[in-house]
Computed example of a mutant assay.
Amino acid sequence: MTILGKRIRMERIMNRNTGRTVIVPMDHGISVGPIPGLTDMKTTIQNIADGGANAIVEHKGLVEEGHRKGGSDIGLIIHLSGSTSLSIYPNAKTLVCSVEEAIKLGADAVSIHVNLGNGQEKEMLNDFGKVAYEARTWGMPLLAMMYPRGEKIKDEYDVNVVKHVARVGKEMGADIIKVSYTGSPESFREVTEGCAAPVVIAGGPKMDSDRDILEMVKGSVDAGGAGVSIGRNVFQHRDPKRMVQAISSIVHEGATVDEGLEILG
């Protein structure tokens, strides 16, 4: 029954026709506070849902702030880990929610953030192992946000470290792996080919150019990526609804970058 349950939940966050997904993470409040785009959560979530995103990521305390209200439905991924920029160890993520609690809140999936290459790596891997076991036991899809960040990392966009952390995510039992884009379809293909699980890209810092965002999305999909998990470049956009529509057109409909830009006007 857990296998059936996982399949049903996966269909709420992955498009069954394309096998890809457009996820908008909005878990930034714990890390950096109420940044622009995340002050009026109900409006932001509604715009993202109306744009056609497959799922959002948020912490447990914000589930009631508009999820599945106002007519538009959207998958719910509850984030299980956190840290703050106020800490002297901001890269050290700790568990702040459990799989069971997320189920009680109506989650379709759970996510965990793991930074590798720092002094707290072993604790985060230990937490990852426990969460992966609980998720498998309950039939809950698990999204792993995998980043090479810490004292040993010289370049967190280096394809060699990105494909390593992506592989760690799969080896540990995640169903979807989120990593940074490595800059080109050619290099990112090394990441997708080395990870036997759907790989989605992070959006990174807020970009100034819509074309840059859509070219990154297009490049990742062309390299075998399974879509996106883009936050600030969606919810801080001048028109989040249309940005989701533009990204979705590339991820699910095979649109070109120029066609995506036409949606943005």
Rank of each mutant, 00 (worst) to 15 (best):
P148T: 05
P148C: 03
P148Y: 05
G150W: 03
E151I: 13
I153P: 03
K154E: 15
K154D: 15
K154C: 12
E156S: 13
D158G: 08
V159I: 13
V159C: 10
V159K: 11
V162T: 08
K163Y: 02
K163F: 01
H164P: 09
A166E: 00
R167P: 12
R167G: 12
V168R: 06
G169T: 03
K170P: 00
E171D: 14
M172L: 14
M172C: 08
M172A: 13
G173S: 06
A174Q: 06
I177E: 05
I177T: 07
I177F: 04
I177P: 07
K178I: 00
V179M: 04
V179A: 07
Y181C: 01
Y181S: 04
T182I: 08
G183L: 05
G183N: 04
S184F: 13
S184T: 14
E186Y: 12
E186F: 14
F188C: 02
R189T: 11
E190Y: 11
T192Y: 11
E193P: 06
G194M: 06
C195E: 00
C195R: 00
A196P: 03
A196N: 14
A196Q: 14
P198T: 07
V199C: 14
I201L: 06
I201H: 10
K206N: 12
M207A: 14
M207P: 05
M207H: 13
D208M: 12
D208E: 15
S209F: 10
D210F: 11
R211Q: 13
M216L: 13
M216Y: 02
M216F: 05
V217E: 04
V217T: 08
K218R: 15
S220F: 08
D222V: 09
A223N: 08
G224E: 03
G227Q: 07
I230C: 06
I230Q: 03
G231W: 04
G231T: 02
R232Y: 05
N233E: 02
N233L: 02
N233I: 00
N233F: 04
V234P: 01
F235E: 04
R238T: 11
D239N: 12
P240C: 01
K241V: 08
K241M: 14
V244W: 01
V244I: 10
Q245I: 00
Q245K: 14
A246I: 03
S248Q: 09
S248L: 01
I250S: 06
H252Q: 10
H252P: 04
E253L: 12
E253R: 15
G254I: 02
T256I: 09
T256M: 07
T256E: 00
V257C: 00
V257E: 03
D258M: 06
D258I: 08
D258R: 04
G260H: 05
G260R: 01
E262W: 07
E262M: 10
E262Y: 11
